[in-house]
Design a protein around this nucleic acid. Structure first.
Lengths: 340, 340
DNA sequence: CAAAAGGACCAAAGCGCTTTGGAAGACTCT
DNA sequence: AGAGTCTTCCAAAGCGCTTTGGTCCTTTTG
């Protein structure tokens, strides 16, 4: 059942039927009713390929997926996707993942824009002055950045959490509890979120005249193993930290293991706070010692990004507004006063 | 730069240019060279929307993504996606995720097929007599099932691992080590993989005249917390198991925690074997007691599924061949002889 | 009451490709 | 030399929609 057939059986032109269905004003309300009714009854759905050729609209949002044998997709991605998908579903949007060589994503961005394959894209895990952001900005396709990319001379729309504030608060609490030697096990410090977290922590320490020594900062990809290694490195120093802030729940699994291996205890010897993106399959309250966290649901962020993308596609949202969500600091058993 | 312009500047018809580019035989090799050359020089890329309207081919593979507030996407998904994406990239295929109400995926499948939105689809986490498999089979779109769906009177193409064999071997080893009370912490037993694993284990036990008591089987969604709960339930029984097979690394985190909470040790009091889908961010060899596993890279499976989908799209693969991959049994410190 | 304005509809021209059904010329064969 | 056969190319017809630029008729306005 296509437009031609439908209009034929209604004894109307394709023009009128098309307009009736798409809500144009120049069609009699009575006629529109007839058309809409008939369309529903016969299960008519406009062919997206045809519509897309005619209008350029695809009803899809895009994401360039870095791939490669040595490239690992962050497990946070599924949670983000859950939120994004949940919203997208309610708006009949599909998501197209365009795999790209991790070292040459530009080609892929250019392709999907030139080919009009999607109506909008989002960018995740941005770095300062991220080239992807600059690129999509000049290419002129609607986009939202999940996270932030500092250091541009233009504004762009983003949705981010207050990473700096979160780690500022976490560090402030630890200092108030008497800790003087804090350490940070961070994610890849080429990414903005990691930079912001470190900055927040330093700011809190500075406020009390403390500093974050170079030997007290680690920057690694967020695996359990790296958490373990980082923790061992930190704790086996001559002046080990008495408190650690950690950028991910997965890494903190490794931290806990290291602490145990060294015969230390949490929170007796070490206080620990980690950032929690809220996974359904790993919860900080279920750690052997319930883990204190800075918490922000990445799933909600996914839904929000989808919502904003949809709004930008339909022209409801414009401009370069960035939004920063606050982060909860949830205190559980893994923090205590500094050991004497 | 579109076909019209290109053919104009070559003083050829659109027909000839199109055919030259698409490798049709009825064009002079010299002419083809000229055309291909000019196309490359001017960066001509056929408009996919137009091509798609004309041919029905989309260059995309589809996946219906179950979503909803209470639906969690399995973290295995990213790893599968890594493999799929890596292969898809090399063949210029994109992946479109169509979010669907988890309770009504049929509508979405029908839509993407009716609209010709993708050239092929894959199905994951199938259950016995899975309706999705029956549906796509009748809809006639090329597909591959990742996993298996038993109980149909027709054949279909799938790529699966030997779950039954894996857990058979694992249980057999445990029995040989003297264990007599084994337990299984399984995934959702409505899914085929879980059924196969249980079957494998039962078969191994039966071979030695043993059985898997009802109180020694758990079937839960694979979270750390559920692993913990299941383990506690098992180990606090009057006749606790001396060995546990566990369907996921994430659950086994919970098992290890439970064992510790109960003051028991691995492998002294309990031997543990888990299935490992090979995550980059959580490795069995790094468990406090290195974990024995049945191992199969889900990333490789993703790549294989993509490869087969591509082959089916291009007509290179036909028929309903199912393939079953063997699973490695990797023995590490978490297994030992049964306690006396 | 003629002229202007508005309402409701339509024919046809895109969108940019692929594919059908020739056609023209060169070659082979009897 | 005329009939067939390749080879190589082309004009034009789709694919199924949206949108432009009318037309025709009814209503309002000066």
């Amino acid at each position: 059942m296509n437009l031609k057939q439908l209009s034929h059986m209604l004894a109307l032109s394709q023009t009128t039927v098309s307009r009736a269905l798409n809500g144009y004003p120049e069609v009699n309300e009575e006629t529109r009713r007839r058309v809409v009714d008939a369309a529903k009854r016969h299960g008519y759905r406009p062919n997206p390929s045809a519509r897309r050729l005619a209008t350029g609209k695809t009803g899809m949002i895009g994401y360039v997926l870095p791939t490669g044998a040595s490239v690992d997709i962050d497990p946070h991605f599924v949670e983000f996707l859950s939120g994004l998908g949940d919203y997208a579903r309610s708006h009949e949007l599909d998501l197209v993942l365009s795999p790209a060589d991790a070292d040459d994503q530009e080609t892929t961005y250019r392709r999907i824009v030139a080919n009009r394959q999607v109506d909008a894209v989002y960018i995740s895990s941005p770095r300062p002055a991220d080239r992807r952001v600059a690129l999509v900005n000049t290419l002129g396709i609607p986009f939202i950045v999940h996270g932030r990319s500092d250091g541009f001379d233009f504004d762009y729309p983003f949705t981010d959490i207050d990473n700096e504030g979160a780690f500022h608060e976490a560090a402030r609490l630890l200092v108030q509890l008497g800790h003087r030697r804090l350490a940070l096990i961070n994610g890849d410090d080429r990414e903005t979120f990691a930079i912001h977290r470190e900055r927040g922590m330093r700011r809190a320490l500075a406020a009390s005249g403390l500093t974050l020594g170079e030997r007290h900062v680690c920057s690694v990809t967020m695996t359990e193993e790296n958490g373990y290694r980082a923790a061992r490195r930190l704790l086996e120093q001559s002046e080990p930290p008495t408190a650690i802030a950690c950028s991910s729940l997965i890494m903190s699994l490794g931290v806990v293991r290291a602490v145990r291996d060294l015969g230390l205890t949490i929170p007796g010897d070490l206080s620990l706070i980690a950032h929690d993106d809220v996974f359904p399959w790993l919860k900080p309250e279920n750690f052997s010692v319930p883990l204190s966290t800075t918490r922000s649901s990445i799933r909600l962020a996914g839904a929000r990004v989808a919502e904003r993308l949809a709004a930008r596609i339909s022209g409801l949202e414009e401009g370069a507004r960035g939004e920063v969500w606050p982060v909860d600091l949830v205190v559980r058993g893994s923090v205590a006063g500094a050991p004497v």
